[in-house]
Nucleic acid binder design. Structure first.
Length: 566
RNA sequence: UGUCCGAUGGUGUAACUGGCAACACAUCUGAUUCUGGAUCAGAAGAGUCUAGGUUCGAAACCUAGUCGGACAACCA
């Protein structure tokens, strides 16, 4: 009998396969090293939600197991990298809520060491300088099913290799003239083992090392060693590096250096968007969007500008889990995460985006009534504010129907509704223009219902939002929708590409009327426009032009109902 | 035709490592509500890619197959 087993009440929180590996590592008493991870971006683009998954995994894992996580820039290709990207990456990681302390590293910090590693391989007869052109190397590599051909330079002497490699470093050769290659196995079934290039000549200044170097290590010859130098215990990376692992293991063994454990996981895919840096760059360059931080972009800066919070993104990363199978996450899950967070945090305000004038016939011309509105029903501490009510108001055009269907709760002729936090009103008349469009709705109000409830406790079916015409502030509102019309834009039909599925209606700019209270809004501040959605003040806001981005709409069971009836 | 990896409701992730499949999102009901929001209660939905095998017992282990993904930059 094993009564020593866990008590049944002790619910085991399921952990992902990476944490299972790490817990086994910790349980193994031979490992006295604390868990150490790293997030290793290349500074050649902006971070996106897929990177956020990796950041949360790496920093989150370190936190969970009382370890550390480094930020390391894998900057081995000066032709593609830039400080602009370094800065944005730092900002984004910090904004997500992670701290790498003073452990900000660069692969370029290790160039000298990596050069020494190369020398060591040459001395062991495991690397050689090759004069073949890029095309020739490519041709000689063979195919996955056909072995490659050995380079004619493969058997140069150690001394020749040493001196040639030295001369590569001192700049005697032009770009592409020579490379350093590992001497492994041109017949390996793993393409990465077919004498991979270790160093290439690039006469381009590096954003950190300037013109100190004209030879740069390939990613494969820098990444694993950088992890090793930093004594990373667990090198967590995406699936495509699984086939590189035998190569990294080979380097570690030949170099006789510390061996991190590499663990691969499946990258994030989200519906209705693309996640490749190349494609995002292309959309920026071709002006399909307004920059990397366009609120429609899945970039971290785009999501930030859209109104997403770090908490919501961290929570998203948590609940999507980590595994090795390919996945396609429904954006609805991301949206759920931000709604959940903003519902608790966002200040409520009344805003009318598609105004229809309402005139309260029995309301005194110059009277202004003031009532209390709750700032956030989910958080009493956020208090109350005053709202101003007058004879002429705006309501949402969709909140009035002359000839409504049965389930319509809102305003229609003869029907009474509540104006939120104000009065009950009843529609008595409708004024139309020559085209037959409604331009004014006339109502009467019940003065006894001030604040939104009646002494006789009579029920009204609907409550709608409104603003006082003479008090409301006009603002610009940017309505964003998904960037693509297809669930998986990468799944392209013949003759098309991902851009064929761009949503031409992904941005609509309109004017809205909002409570005067909104004037205090600061850039980035988030609001719930009652009954409409979540919005945040955009950085393009100026002194006399307030601009709001729609983060997303509120859930809406009415439009669902409407569609059903059609 | 090679090597490596993967396959569980519509989606994603679990299943205490062999004891008759759970959680979240999405969907649908109903209650409640001064947001058709939120909240609460409930429902439906997979028998775990297929076929064999091991076992008292398989989503899990073994074998074969099927399907999907990755790999042939002097990119990362």
């Amino acid at each position: 009998m094993d009564n020593l087993k866990n008590t049944p009440e002790e619910k085991k929180v399921p952990i992902n396969f990476i944490h299972q590996i790490i817990e086994a590592y910790i349980d193994n008493k031979k490992n006295n090293r604390a868990v150490h991870t790293r997030f290793p971006p290349e500074p050649n683009g902006y971070l996106h939600i897929g990177h956020a998954k990796s950041i949360c995994l790496n920093f989150g894992t370190a936190q969970k197991y009382n370890g550390l996580c480094n930020l390391r820039f894998d900057d081995t290709n000066p032709a593609k990298e830039d400080v602009e990207y370094v800065d944005s990456i730092r900002e984004d990681v910090k904004w997500l809520g992670f701290d790498w302390g003073n452990r900000e590293y660069y692969a370029s910090d290790y160039f000298e060491q990596i050069y020494e590693y190369a020398i060591k391989l040459i001395n062991k007869g495991k690397a050689y300088v090759c004069d073949l052109t890029a095309e020739e190397i490519s041709e000689n590599r063979g195919t996955p099913t056909k072995a490659g051909i050995e380079s004619p330079y493969r058997d140069r002497s150690v001394d020749d290799n040493l001196s040639l490699f030295q001369r590569m470093r001192t700049g005697e050769f032009k770009d592409g003239e020579k490379v350093l290659r590992a001497k492994i196995d041109m017949a390996s079934p793993n393409m990465h083992m077919r004498d991979p290039v270790l160093y290439r000549i690039i006469h381009t200044d590096h954003h950190r090392t300037g013109n100190k170097w004209c030879i740069y290590p390939m990613y494969d010859f820098a990444h694993g060693q950088s992890d090793s130098i930093e004594k990373i215990t667990h090198s967590i990376c995406t699936l495509e590096f699984e086939v590189h692992r035998p190569l990294y293991d080979w380097f570690i063994k030949e170099l006789e250096i510390f061996a991190p454990q590499q663990i691969e996981f499946a990258r994030l895919n989200l519906t209705y968007t693309v996640m490749s840096k190349r494609k995002l760059l292309q959309m920026v360059q071709e002006k399909q969007v307004n920059g990397w931080d366009d609120p429609r972009m899945p970039t971290i800066c785009g999501l930030r500008r859209r109104g997403y919070t770090p908490e919501s993104i961290r929570n998203f990363a948590e609940i999507i889990g980590v595994a090795k199978r390919d996945n396609m996450i429904d954006v609805a899950l991301l949206e759920h995460c931000i709604r959940e967070d903003l519902n608790k945090k966002a200040q409520r305000v009344m805003a009318v985006l598609n105004p229809l004038k309402v005139i309260i016939d029995n309301f005194p011309d110059n009277l202004i009534e003031e009532t209390d509105a709750i700032n956030n029903p989910e958080d009493e501490k956020m208090g109350k504010r005053k709202v101003l009510f007058s004879k002429e108001l705006f309501i949402e055009r969709e909140d009035f129907m002359e000839d409504p269907p049965k389930n319509y709760y809102r305003l229609s002729p003869g029907k009474e509704v509540r104006l939120r936090y104000a009065f009950y009103i009843k529609c008595v008349n409708v004024v139309k223009n020559l085209l037959g469009e409604i331009i004014e709705v006339h109502c009467t109000y019940d003065p006894e219902t001030k604040g939104g409830s009646s002494p006789d406790k009579r029920k009204v079916q609907g409550t709608i939002h409104w603003v006082s015409a003479k008090h409301a502030i006009e603002t610009e509102i940017r309505l964003y929708d998904r960037l693509f019309t297809k669930e998986n834009p990468d799944d392209v039909e013949e003759g098309k590409d991902f851009k064929s599925y761009l949503n031409t209606d992904s941005l609509k700019i309109i004017k809205g009327k909002i409570e005067p209270f909104i004037k205090t809004a600061k850039v980035g501040e988030k609001f719930q426009f009652e009954r409409i959605g979540y919005f945040c003040a955009d950085k393009d806001t100026t002194e006399n032009n307030l601009i709001f981005n729609r983060t997303l709409t509120l859930k809406d069971s009415w439009t669902k109902e409407e569609k059903k009836n059609k």
